[in-house]
Design a protein around this nucleic acid. Structure first.
Lengths: 145, 145
DNA sequence: GTAGATTAGTCCGATATCGGACTATTATCC
DNA sequence: GGATAATAGTCCGATATCGGACTAATCTAC
């Protein structure tokens, strides 16, 4: 029967994975087009919280972006390698590290917002505002399964 | 403004990534509950095509599952390690490798279908059939951006 | 004020995925 | 039938992510 085949071959899991991949490719291409080819989509987990408050700690960044501390360690290393942040030891707590934006990252901020807005506009152009909102809602519902 | 904040912090990309992650966790938990804890969600890329035609080649598997040949090489190694497939050299083409299901994999097939059906049912119970179909459609639309 | 608990961050190893470069084999074409 | 092209698969290194175990520093309670 077709039902079973569709359940395995056009699986919701498959669609979610591919859509996520595709989104990230579009985002990276957008950043590159605007002169920030070194910025990977995942860097958002570091940069976005810092745009709202520079100098946060590793653990705080991980918590705000809903990733593990291990992931944040790896990620900050890459973002630092690419010159967008710098780490400094916290003077008040010898265990902690504070992460600071560089000028390059500050220059990137409007580009990030613009690229995101462009992508959102493209999605709305394709799906329509109502279906786009309903997609949003459906994804959040899935998370509570 | 709130619009910008939502665009960056409750990003569609973020939701897609997290929903995909969550789906895979649910799937792995389901397999484990039914006695196949060793089966990872990604193994579907190997097993599903083989359920429809055992003994396919690496490249054919990669093509059918829309992953790269490199990914398939890695994946088949893991699936073989876990005892679900065996590789044999193709007698008609010395470059090619054919992948065959083991008895354990054949025993897993109905479990896979059952678990997938359970998950689909849970999604429909949460979203309703119409919103579930529209989610499906919206994700496919995204892929053509 | 020191012993024990907690916290911050990293190291290690695993899964999952890709692009580029490579090797081995087969096919093609004069 | 031998040079060249194409194909099958793997190796290497990269990104992205996690859990468990570890180290170093701080806090807590006596």
């Amino acid at each position: 029967m077709d039902g079973t085949r569709r359940a395995t071959r056009e699986n919701l899991g498959f669609l979610l994975a591919k859509a996520s991949q595709h989104w990230n490719e579009l985002l990276a291409a957008g950043f590159a087009r605007h002169g920030f080819a070194e910025v990977r989509p995942s860097y958002g987990s570091v940069l976005v919280p810092l745009f709202e408050g520079d100098g946060l700690r590793m653990g705080e960044l991980a918590w705000r972006s809903h990733v593990s501390k291990q992931t944040m360690t790896t990620l900050v290393r890459l973002v630092e390698r690419d010159g967008l942040v710098a780490r400094r030891r916290d003077p008040d707590d010898g265990r902690a590290t504070r992460v600071h934006l560089t000028d390059r990252a500050k220059a990137f901020r409007p580009i990030a917002e613009k690229t995101l807005a462009e992508l959102d506009a493209a999605v709305r152009a394709r799906l329509g505002g109502s279906e786009a909102r309903s997609l949003h809602g459906a994804l959040k519902e899935l998370m509570s399964l």
